[in-house]
Amino acid sequence: MKSPLFNRRHFTLQVLALAAGGNVLPAGAAAPGRKILIVGDSLSAEYGLTRGTGWVALLQKQLEHSHPGTLIVNASISGETTSGGRSRLPALLRQHQPTHVIIELGGNDALRGLALSMTEDNLTFMARSARETGARVLLLGMQMPPNYGPQMTRQFAGLYAKVARSTGSVLVPFFLKTVGDDPDPARWFQADRIHPNEAAQPRLLGNVWPELRKLL
């Protein structure tokens, strides 16, 4: 059974809205120690979830115990593409001066059928820009809907590994592992069959945390 997340007929564009998840710092705010900037889409913006239950909020709680003093800037926006992330990132880097950057983008590019070369170029620009500031980068990989065919699916998944290698970033191969590819994925998604539900959020964090912990 294929995951409904990757069935294009269920895809609908979301209205752009700033995420309320995580601990978003105001401009000019100073914080000691580590600061993690997350640039993502609805999967990181708590779309359809009670505030404080998304994987980013769970990550903040995890860090309070394992790495006290680490702050999160969640700059994720529902509906965001890699082009949008690319245009916003330079200002975010200047404003927040993060020590770590998590890039969770590309899923909307795939669902909109955007050129793979553009997605790769945008992700490469973002990762290199963050690395040039001295930040460590974690790239969260996504997969393309299967209706595009096996060749496109492989190429899309492969571009994340290529970007990670060329920019010296750390890669989570599939951010939705054990959720989007579960034998019974419906139990992990909201009624729209697109966005992971509250029960799935610990699994998303479980995919991110092992690699992020190495960077911390």
Results as ranks from 00 to 15, higher is better:
residue 61 K to M: 09
residue 29 A to E: 14
residue 152 M to L: 15
residue 97 Q to I: 09
residue 164 A to Q: 04
residue 71 L to K: 09
residue 156 F to Q: 13
residue 37 L to M: 04
residue 110 A to K: 09
residue 24 V to F: 08
residue 193 R to W: 13
residue 203 R to G: 03
residue 178 T to P: 00
residue 137 V to A: 12
residue 185 P to V: 01
residue 42 S to G: 07
residue 197 N to T: 04
residue 29 A to N: 13
residue 181 D to L: 02
residue 75 A to F: 06
residue 141 G to W: 07
residue 61 K to R: 15
residue 77 I to H: 02
residue 188 W to D: 11
residue 62 Q to I: 01
residue 165 R to V: 13
residue 113 G to Q: 09
residue 155 Q to M: 12
residue 77 I to D: 03
residue 154 R to E: 13
residue 3 S to N: 07
residue 165 R to F: 08
residue 154 R to W: 05
residue 66 S to N: 04
residue 103 I to H: 04
residue 72 I to F: 00
residue 76 S to W: 00
residue 34 R to G: 13
residue 190 Q to G: 08
residue 22 G to H: 05
residue 206 G to Y: 00
residue 41 D to F: 12
residue 30 A to R: 15
residue 212 L to D: 02
residue 200 A to W: 02
residue 10 H to L: 14
residue 182 D to K: 10
residue 44 S to E: 09
residue 143 Q to L: 13
residue 57 A to C: 08
residue 168 G to H: 01
residue 64 E to R: 04
residue 106 G to V: 10
residue 214 K to W: 12
residue 62 Q to H: 06
residue 169 S to G: 14
residue 198 E to C: 03
residue 213 R to Q: 15
residue 210 P to D: 12
residue 149 G to F: 06
residue 174 F to H: 11
residue 135 A to K: 10
residue 45 A to P: 01
residue 3 S to P: 01
residue 208 V to T: 05
residue 91 A to H: 08
residue 178 T to W: 05
residue 31 A to W: 09
residue 152 M to G: 06
residue 153 T to M: 12
residue 162 K to A: 14
residue 126 M to G: 13
residue 47 Y to E: 10
residue 47 Y to A: 09
residue 12 T to A: 15
residue 28 G to D: 13
residue 168 G to S: 02
residue 59 L to R: 06
residue 52 G to T: 10
residue 3 S to G: 15
residue 170 V to G: 03
residue 54 G to E: 02
residue 165 R to Y: 06
residue 80 E to P: 01
residue 42 S to C: 13
residue 169 S to I: 04
residue 27 A to W: 00
residue 133 T to A: 03
residue 79 G to D: 06
residue 91 A to F: 09
residue 59 L to W: 03
residue 216 L to D: 11
residue 61 K to H: 07
residue 123 L to R: 02
residue 136 R to Q: 14
residue 45 A to S: 07
residue 216 L to K: 02
residue 51 R to E: 11
